[in-house]
Design a protein around this nucleic acid. Structure first.
Lengths: 342, 342
DNA sequence: TTGAAAGCGCTAACAT
DNA sequence: ATGTTAGCGCTTTCAA
């Protein structure tokens, strides 16, 4: 006995309640597996809901319960290879809980970050995961007064609003510097993005420089690019730098993508790698494996950062806690573009 | 005269209303720039809201207005290089409108697709963009009865629930087949993913085979892999295939990522490319440019697919329309791994 | 130009 | 085990 006029309006709890001859409240309980409902009623309601094709309205549910099982995740870019992995970590950890990640993208623009933040907060999420420690005052204010756990990820060199999990990029730079020096390289060039947006790249460069200088070595050359990193950009930068400073014996790239472009070029040109020229990148992007020679790199621990951030949210939703910063230890992978110190 | 006890509860319209001495309704009008409000009131309310740090509650707003300015976007994976670009197209087109994309990821699993779909629909989005034409019956039912515009993207070989925009992958396979034949290759091997999940790859293979067979040429060998595509996988497959069928003169990969792995290997091995051995991939992934030699490929039109899908949603929200399928024309880029015919 | 009342679809809290 | 009542924080609609 189907309704002759199928309603264009989405079904409500009340519709299901009427069809199954119980109160809205009972339907609600059945659908959320809450409270005691007799197996008989339970089955009947479930069956009715299913055959009617009822989909609960979370908007109404969230308003009534003032619970929104969403975790806002704000990242600078989707095309970065780095962030998909962070997201996987978050999703993996949230799988099986009531929480779900919702993504916002800032395109590395503080203005857009503010907008995205405002937008996401207006949905009253249960927690917030946001990349980086550098935000506009307005953004920091919003985060601070959001009333939910906020986890700033990727970086631990700075002051988090609430919690942070990541690596010290200064330290990552130092680790690589130490290895470069130990391997006997002395004429080192840096190739990275324009530094006003890339805070973490800047910190790595700082760490590198400090550590080199502590050993009495000056950075020999620097080359910067604008826009998104790409293999092609790495190649271009490398060509420019080696033309300008042909006597370099090491190229340190701000990431693996550009590093691979440079490595490719140097191999083609017949440079003796790692004998006369060493190279290194950053991130340990496994997607680039299988390409010629394996680039030396430092792992940015992305998946673990994602998992940890999600876990910190879950913990704080159970029991409110103080802010906390978790610094992960980045591992150096010497790959095949670094001389074995001897 | 600040409140001595700062409220832990998020601010409401009423709080702003009380502070600025007007009704909630007036505040609402000011904040949404709706209706007529005197400039004086307007300024006062705006100022109050700003200093209080009020963030509107979209949950409540959406429930009251039964308008949710969200477009659900459901894709199989974030790590694919293909989908970030689709998303960019969608975001670009939605920029400046009231609509916002919200992402769901299925990991290529029909079961998870159902879950994600249900979850997203329970937020009553204004529109739905979903990758592929192959869905479970339950998923198709949900899409059909959602009451909002549904755009299935990437593929046009099949029956959409409502609208579709994409390319014909069968045709993409044929286009490449024609070019391969014209370039004079005859011993062709295919390297792709296990086909039960990769519907679009399967369609390309079908198209390739049909077109080859029409010319009296049989596919000489096939190699499949499981899991996600990667450069390393491409290399492995290529090694296996060339060992098994050393007489091949062409390798057709189901995508650029694996293709680049193969190309890299072949170059290292000193194969005469494109003279004795030709290669081609699919997608026109520009991120891989700058790597040794440019791989022949067919563009999958991802950014345009994204933009078109978003536009179709916007159009249909203005004026309801019939379902429509838009087939884009994939362009062949011969790169440097294809003999010039003639 | 402004305000008051009603209600969006659901759930918390309290009946029964 | 089930029902009733009263909102959640906004917007719609109507009145002033």
């Amino acid at each position: 006995m189907a309704n002759p006029i199928p309603p264009r309006r989405p079904l409500t709890l009340r519709d299901v309640a009427e069809q199954s001859g119980v109160s809205e409240m009972t339907v609600s309980r059945v659908l959320r597996a809450r409270g005691d409902v007799s197996p008989a009623t339970r089955e009947r309601v479930l069956e009715t809901a299913r055959t009617m094709g009822y989909v609960p309205n979370k908007i109404a549910g969230s308003l009534a319960s003032s619970r929104v099982n969403l975790v806002a995740v704000i990242i600078p870019s989707m095309g970065n290879l780095v962030f998909p992995e962070v997201l996987s970590g978050i999703s993996a950890e949230l799988e099986g809980t009531v929480l779900q990640p919702v993504l916002g993208v800032t395109d590395y623009r503080p203005g857009k970050e503010e907008k995205v933040l405002y937008e996401m907060l207006s949905w009253r999420p249960s927690g917030m995961i946001i990349a980086g420690l550098e935000h506009s005052d307005a953004s920091r204010a919003m985060l601070a007064s959001s009333g939910v756990p906020v986890i700033e990820i990727m970086d631990t060199d700075g002051d988090p609003v609430d919690c942070a999990v990541g690596i010290s990029h200064d330290r990552a730079g130092r680790i690589m510097a130490k290895q470069i020096l130990e391997s006997g390289y002395r004429k080192i060039g840096f190739l990275g993005s324009v530094m006003d947006r890339d805070h973490r790249g800047r910190k790595r460069l700082q760490g590198l420089k400090s550590e080199l200088e502590a050993a009495g070595v000056q950075l020999a050359d620097e080359e910067f690019y604008e826009g998104t990193s790409s293999i092609a950009k790495g190649r271009e930068m490398t060509i420019a730098m080696l033309k300008r400073s042909p006597n370099l014996d090491f190229l340190y790239y701000s990431n693996d993508i550009t590093g691979v472009g440079g490595l490719q070029y140097c191999l083609e040109q017949g440079y003796d790698i790692p004998g006369k020229l060493g190279l290194a990148g950053f991130n340990a992007v496994t997607e680039l494996n299988g390409l010629s020679r394996k680039l030396a790199t430092v792992d940015s621990c992305r998946a673990e950062i994602g998992r940890t951030a999600a876990r910190m949210i879950l913990d704080r939703l159970e029991t409110p806690q103080e802010g906390e910063t978790i610094e992960l230890t980045p591992m150096l992978d010497p790959g095949e573009t670094l001389r074995t110190p001897g």
